[in-house]
Computed example of a mutant assay.
Amino acid sequence: MRVSEAMTRQVHIANPDQSIRDVATIMAECDLGSLPVGENDLLVGMITDRDIAIRAVANGKSPNATTVREVMSQDVKYCFDDAELSDVARNMGDIQLHRLPVVDHDKHLVGILALADIANCEGSEVAGDTVCGLSVPRGH
């Protein structure tokens, strides 16, 4: 099975020039812990609730004046829409990620793959292996 068959296509996307207050509001309303950041239809980063808390709030930055670009992670892990789902699921466990942006080969954001998507499509074995990988502390 390919990632494109399991991923969620309707993805909320943050703009790098949005304030972190706007993005935090979207995260709260949609019960999300992270959002891909897109610019000109390309994936340019990820912003998480942790980025907002650690890189902005803890450093006294204004939620209204601080942009997503200032606190987002630019080194984003992603997968391709035509990749094998089982391979991507194993990789997610190895690198301890709960969700992964999905891009096409032109690097356009086309969806997001979450553990729930894997569980719904692949069954308990692959999803279980992925979750086990997430529960192992890094470095062990």
Rank of each mutant, 00 (worst) to 15 (best):
V44M: 10
L85G: 07
S19I: 04
S124E: 14
V102W: 10
G139N: 08
H98K: 15
D51L: 00
A119L: 08
S86W: 12
V126N: 04
H98T: 08
G123T: 09
E29K: 14
V57H: 02
R55Y: 10
V44H: 06
N59D: 12
A127L: 05
G128T: 10
D49R: 14
Q10C: 00
V131L: 15
L100V: 11
Q18E: 14
C132S: 14
L97D: 05
R90S: 12
I26Q: 05
R21Y: 09
D104E: 07
A6C: 13
P16L: 10
L113I: 07
C79Q: 05
L97S: 00
D106E: 14
G128H: 09
L97E: 10
S62P: 02
I52E: 03
N91Q: 14
A127E: 04
S86D: 14
N40Q: 14
R55G: 09
A119K: 08
P137L: 11
D81K: 04
D31Q: 09
N15A: 14
D31W: 00
T8Y: 03
H98E: 10
L97M: 15
G60H: 06
V103Y: 03
V71Q: 08
H98Q: 10
N40D: 15
A116F: 07
E39F: 10
V102T: 11
A28G: 01
N64G: 04
E84K: 03
L109T: 05
I118D: 02
T25G: 01
H108Y: 12
S135R: 11
A83W: 10
L32T: 06
A24K: 04
V3C: 09
V11A: 05
R50H: 10
L97V: 15
G128R: 08
V136W: 02
V71E: 05
D87S: 13
D82R: 00
R9F: 00
L134V: 06
T130S: 13
K77H: 14
E84H: 09
R55W: 06
A24W: 03
V88G: 05
P36E: 04
P63C: 09
L115M: 08
G139C: 11
